[in-house]
């Protein structure tokens, strides 16, 4: 029985790990369904009135009408006819969802945003963006970190010196500053950009660990034995050593998924993230400050809930994977 199958056996006994795996799979499935257009396809549709509250709070329609009239009345007191009065009233009505498009709902399942978009659908669509960014960026970072780490650790000498220099350069700059600098250089908003920013800056931790593993493994007797039978350098690096350090890569990969999901949120919150035509948990949170002042808590709640659940499940899953792959830690 191979070591991977033994690891799966150990993993199956871990109840927390199994539950979190199910949640992670559910999130990935949701993201896939959203990408395929099966759910939340119409997330951008302005289905409800502006800041439509969650259905369980009841309709605020009456209050909104009163407010509207109050505004109109206050404008009349000046005695001078406002040439824009009609237009303003129309815009005002429009914003409150009382205009001609009467089909707009007064409440939405879990509330709506400023434009009356359903926050549940936004959160689902945001899951797609955030998971894609997290997974793709982590895959990129793990690929770079493993490649650089393997080369540096295995060849040593000037190759090692070069990659260590690169590592030092990257780690000497504060993380957020580096990320923002790369974002400024790329000067282009979008999912791919975010993936590149995070992937190109986030490989350093993985590099350091993999380099150390290769340093440790390259002098092991099984690698010497592979040398003795004439296995090439590339074969020793990737067919012999890599499967033996694969668990480190895997654990780092899932740790970085969590890290990058959070980084994407921070980037989008700061306005360096995904474009305005895309929604992510970060861009949802970016709208939160102005909403919270008005007491509209549902969008921030939806984004936070989705993110907390996904990140917690992923972290617990990672812990269980580590335990299963590396029983010495237990």
């Amino acid at each position: 029985m191979s070591l991977w199958r033994l690891a799966w056996r150990r993993f199956r006994r871990d109840r927390v790990g199994l539950v979190s795996l199910v949640i992670v799979i559910a999130f990935v499935a949701l993201a896939c369904a959203s990408a395929a257009g099966w759910v939340a396809r119409d997330w951008a549709e302005e289905a409800g009135v502006s800041y439509a509250p969650p259905r369980f709070l009841g309709s605020p329609a009456v209050e909104a009408t009163v407010q509207g009239e109050a505004i109109v009345r206050s404008q009349e007191t000046h005695g001078i006819p406002d040439p824009l009065a009609e237009d303003l009233a129309e815009i005002q009505k429009d914003l409150l969802g009382l205009s001609g498009t009467a089909s707009r709902a007064g409440t939405l399942v879990f509330g709506g945003d400023k434009w009356g978009r359903d926050v549940v659908k936004k959160a689902i669509k945001g899951t797609e963006t955030s998971l894609v960014v997290g997974l793709a960026a982590a895959a990129l970072a793990a690929f770079l970190g493993t490649l650089f780490g393997a080369a540096a650790g295995y060849y040593g000498r000037w190759v090692d010196d070069f990659f260590n220099w690169l590592y030092s350069v990257f780690t000497s700059i504060p993380y957020l500053l580096l990320v923002l600098a790369v974002a400024a250089v790329l000067n282009q908003k979008g999912t791919v950009t975010v993936v590149l920013i995070l992937g190109l800056t986030g490989w350093t931790g993985i590099f350091r660990l993999i380099r150390a593993e290769y340093l440790k493994h390259k002098v092991r007797e099984y690698v010497l034995a592979a040398d003795a039978i004439g296995a090439s350098d590339a074969r020793r690096m990737f067919a012999h050593i890599l499967p033996n350090v694969g668990h480190v890569v895997l654990v780092q990969l899932s740790l970085h998924v969590v890290l990058f999901i959070k980084s994407e949120v921070i980037l989008s919150f700061l306005g360096f993230g995904v474009g305005v035509d895309t929604v992510s948990w970060g861009s949802m949170l970016a709208e939160a400050p102005s909403e919270l002042i008005l007491g509209m808590w549902w969008q921030v709640a939806a984004a936070t809930l989705a993110m907390a659940l996904a990140v917690t499940a992923f972290s617990l899953f990672t812990d269980s994977v580590r335990d299963a792959l590396d029983p010495r830690l237990q």
């Binding site: 191979s2 070591l3 007797e221 099984y222 010497l224 034995a225 012999h240 499967p243 033996n244 694969g246």
Partner: peptide, 12 residues
């Protein structure tokens, strides 16, 4: 043939 049979075979 090396000394340590636990180290000289690739466990994977």
């Amino acid at each position: 043939v090396f000394q340590n049979p636990y180290a000289s075979l690739n466990p994977r």
